[in-house]
């Protein structure tokens, strides 16, 4: 089974196992990865599941809808490879994925 890595702002790493039919946000929640608040439970409404995807993986994380894009543009710690974790559908193609967590969610 595949694995993914979340790296907290302070460098703490969390490896999680890929489970089918779950978003990246849900993977973080189910594995108690701190630093992803996900206040809206994945409805693309809160912007508190911000992650910065490792550059080499960014292209594999799927399309960004306009709502997500607008929220990301306003995120203080936004980067060119920022995503909302609830909008990333995890498949085996993401085996090895590395994402970084911002210092704060807003």
């Amino acid at each position: 089974m595949g694995r993914m890595t979340f790296i907290e702002h302070d460098g703490t790493r969390h490896e999680v196992e890929i489970e089918a039919d779950k978003s990246l946000m849900q993977h973080a929640a189910d594995n108690m990865v701190p630093g992803i608040d996900a206040d809206c439970g994945g409805e693309c409404a809160c912007g508190t599941c911000h992650v910065i995807v490792d550059e080499q993986w960014f292209g594999k994380t799927g399309a960004i809808n306009s709502n997500e894009k607008q929220m990301l543009e306003m995120t203080p710690e936004g980067a060119p490879t920022s995503r909302l974790a609830c909008q990333i559908e995890v498949t085996d193609a993401l085996d090895g994925l590395v994402v970084h967590l911002p210092e704060f969610q807003m």
Partner: peptide
């Protein structure tokens, strides 16, 4: 309404 940037701005201002 369909104004995510304004929402993020408001959250920041208010908090």
């Amino acid at each position: 309404i369909n104004r995510a940037p304004e929402f993020m701005l408001a959250k920041k201002l208010l908090s």
